[in-house]
């Protein structure tokens, strides 16, 4: 209880803890170069570990750390810059981009609804998972609109991202997706920025199309998911 009181009025405690934990995660990934050692994932494990061990409430931590998440909106706005830079690639492949991502979004929602029915999952959990293919900044907004749980969305977003980075290329190979543009679109639309980090390793076209897919999937999800959810 005492430590809670000690850091309760500090704005910087949560911020320092967040940045320090991320730094540790970053260094671990740099050293071992394993995709599943994602810096974000590591920092979260460290912070939850420290908070739980020291008996510090999430709310106390949040007092300072929330100022970092205030940047979620502006950083998403910034994604307009890479999208604009890839305008030409988008124009040349606009049909393939739009239809494939649209069908991907529909398949995602359909499969989730089926699984939710199978496991008797509550609607709140289902709604929390429905925006999980997209970048967290947009996903959290959609979850808010649907009345889902942000924490569950973030878990879903992390599972989607890390799965894409670890087994994404193997799955694409297994189903026979060989076109670089298609590989990039698939990775970006299923696994957002973390999938894109893998696409960068595959090649320049994959990287460009994956970043593009992050934005298009984000916008399509914002439109499609609330519409589908209104029928549930």
């Amino acid at each position: 209880m005492r430590i809670n009181e000690l850091v309760a009025d500090s704005v910087f405690f949560g911020m320092i803890l967040s940045l320090a934990a991320y730094k540790v995660g970053f260094e671990i990934q740099k050293k071992y170069k394993k995709v599943f050692l994602n810096p974000l994932l590591i920092s979260i494990v460290i912070i939850i570990g420290i908070l739980t061990t020291a008996g510090i409430d999430y709310e106390t931590y949040q007092q300072g750390a929330k100022y970092l998440s205030y940047f979620l909106t502006p950083v998403t706005v910034c994604l307009a810059v890479p999208l604009y830079k890839q305008l030409q690639v988008l124009k040349e492949n606009v049909v393939a981009v739009m239809i494939s991502i649209f069908l991907g979004c529909l398949a995602h929602a359909g499969i989730l609804i089926a699984i939710a029915a199978l496991f008797h999952m509550e609607n709140q959990l289902l709604f929390s998972l429905m925006p999980k293919s997209i970048t967290t900044a947009i996903a959290l907004g959609v979850t808010n609109e649907l009345g889902g749980i942000q924490g569950v969305t973030v878990i879903g977003v992390m599972i989607a991202g890390i799965s894409g980075a670890v087994v994404g290329p193997s799955i694409l190979k297994a189903v026979g997706v060989k076109e670089p543009i298609a590989q990039g679109l698939a990775l970006g639309s299923a696994s957002h920025a973390i999938g894109t980090s893998k696409a960068v390793e595959l090649g320049e076209i994959q990287a460009a199309m994956s970043s593009l897919a992050i934005v298009v999937t984000g916008i399509l999800t914002v439109v499609i998911v609330p519409w589908i959810a209104s029928f549930i």
Partner: peptide
Amino acid sequence: AAFISFAAVLAVTGLTAQ
């Protein structure tokens, strides 16, 4: 649920685009 739906998007988007 998260993993299967992830794999579905990957396959559907990839194959359609291709």
